[in-house]
Amino acid sequence: MQETFTEVKTNISEPTLAFKGKGSELFSIQIVNIALMLVTLGLYYPWAKAKNLHYIYRKTELAGSPFTFHGTGKEMFIGFIKGIGILAVLYGVLLYGIFNMTPEDMGIYFICLAIFMVGLSLLVPMALHGMMRYRTSRTSWRGIHMGYRGKLGSMYKVFYLNMFLTMITFGIYGAWFTTNLRKEIIGNMRFGNARFSYTGDGGDLLILHIKGYFLTIVTLGIYSFWWAKDLINFYINNILIEQDGKYSRLDSSLTGWQNLKLTLGNLLIMVFTLGLGYSWVVTRTMHTIIHNCVILGEFNPDMLAQTEEEYKNATFEDMADMLDIGLV
């Protein structure tokens, strides 16, 4: 066999990001998903979710190569069942309290409510941690897996300390809560031998919130699209990537107008299709966010090395959904 490699160039890939998904393709997946979920009374949900994620990841490209989501419906189903079990017990305790209290004796209700609240607040950090571990381990690009190195103990510490400070400052510290939690989560993310970190400052976020709040009132709500844009950009622009001692960062150029068009468009699609257009909402959103996002710096997508071990545990993947934690 005669082999010639002269025509194949070994160019360095540019670290460009792209989203190639189409609403119609996603719709053709979701229509089957919804039908199967109806037939199985919702039990198909983990498989439906896996199919969705497979598609979204596969259509998201870095340097021309797609991401891959390796998670399976079966893995997530086991997590889903465990999650439902834990939540059912918690809600059972709460309902027990509601049904067994009397106006004269509210004690039982408050005890059950306390158990419920404590249980729920124990679950949130655990769900975040479990979801990050599972989701990153199931994400790969050119065969290189992402990973999450965070410790559950440290997640609890960050979560409760910041929650406490947020409560005693009547919510003002909430901005630092957000940035510190992102520092903990993103700071523990790996992409092969590249490490992520988050540099957002709570003070800056608080200023964005104050500015957004007052300008939204003054402009009768119109500024809210710019406020939301600022929050998205604040999230993305503060993500740093360190690779072999060199730093690069993500940069989002999303504008208020773009965000206004995106949000109003999504709203109209949802209303006029009675929710059936949700697939287009997803692809439009992904498209807008990712096409405004670039990697600035010396990130070299050809120089990533595999560092992660194999990990399979999907217990908290769906728990995060059930608790409605929309973080990543």
């Binding site: 109806l38 949900y45 009675l274 929710g275």
Partner: peptide, 17 residues
């Protein structure tokens, strides 16, 4: 229950309607 089955993690407009 039906709404959560139909829309999974999508809260919002459709649910309100």
């Amino acid at each position: 229950m039906l709404l959560s089955v139909l829309f999974g993690d999508v809260s919002g407009i459709a649910a309100v309607i």
